[in-house]
Amino acid sequence: MSWILPPSASTFASDIDFLYYVILWITGIAFVIVEVGLVVFIVKYRARPGRKAEYIQGSTKAEVIWTAIPAVTVVVIGLMSGGVWNDVKGRNSVPAGAIPYGVHAQQFEWQISYRGPDGQLGTGDDFTVRNQLHIPVNQPVVMRLTAEDVIHSLFIPAFRVKQDAMPGMTIDVWFEATQVGEFEIACAELCGIGHTTMGATVTVHTADDYQRWLADRVAAADR
C-alpha cells in the first residue's frame, strides 16, 4: 500500500516524480478537507427531534470562493505540467547527439536495432537484438519507435518512459539513464493474446562497458 513511486533511474524521472508528489499533496489535502467536512456535517447536522433545518438557498460568496480556489490550483498544476511535458515529450525535446536505436514492436516482442560501424541507423550494417536494449549511462539516447502489426506501448517504469508504438508512424522517444544496471521493459497497451508476455530488458552500461559490448556484437555480426 505504498504511495511512493519506485526508484527511478533517468534524468527527467525526478521532474515527473516531483510533479506527482506535488499533485499527491494537493489532492491529498483536498481529499482530507472534503472527507473530514462530510463526516463533521454528518455528525453535527444529523436529525434530532424538534430541530428544523435552516432554510438556506445558497451563497454567492461561497460559490465564488470554491470556484476560484480550484480554478487557480488546477491552472498552476497545468502550468507546472506543461513545462515538464515540453522537456520530456515536446517536439524539439530530443537532445542533440542522442544515440539513435530502432525499436520495432510486434506481436509479441521488441526488435531493437543498433547502429553498425558506419555510425548510421537504418543502413545495411545495423544489427538487431530481440528483446534486449543496451545503452550507455549518462548519455541521451533516442528510440525510433515503430510497430509492425498493432499498437504496442514501450513502458520502462524505472525511467518513467512510456510511448505507444503506432503502426504507420515513427515516434521518437528519448531518455537518459543515470544508473548502471538492468531494468525491465513492458508492453503497456493491450496487443493481443500474448500481450502479457511482451517484456524485454534494458541494460545500462558504463561508457567503456558499452563500447566493449558494442565491439563484441559487431565482431559477432562480422563472423
Binding site: 515527473i16 483536498a30 462530510l38 505540467s81 513502458f155
Partner: peptide
Amino acid sequence: VAFVSMFVIGGLSGVFMASPPVDIYFHD
C-alpha cells in the same frame, strides 16, 4: 453521501492523469 465521498476520490485521482508528464507513468 457515499457517492459524494467516492466521487471526490475519483475526481482527485483524475488530476494525476490530467497532468501529461505524470500520465506518462500512470497511463494504462
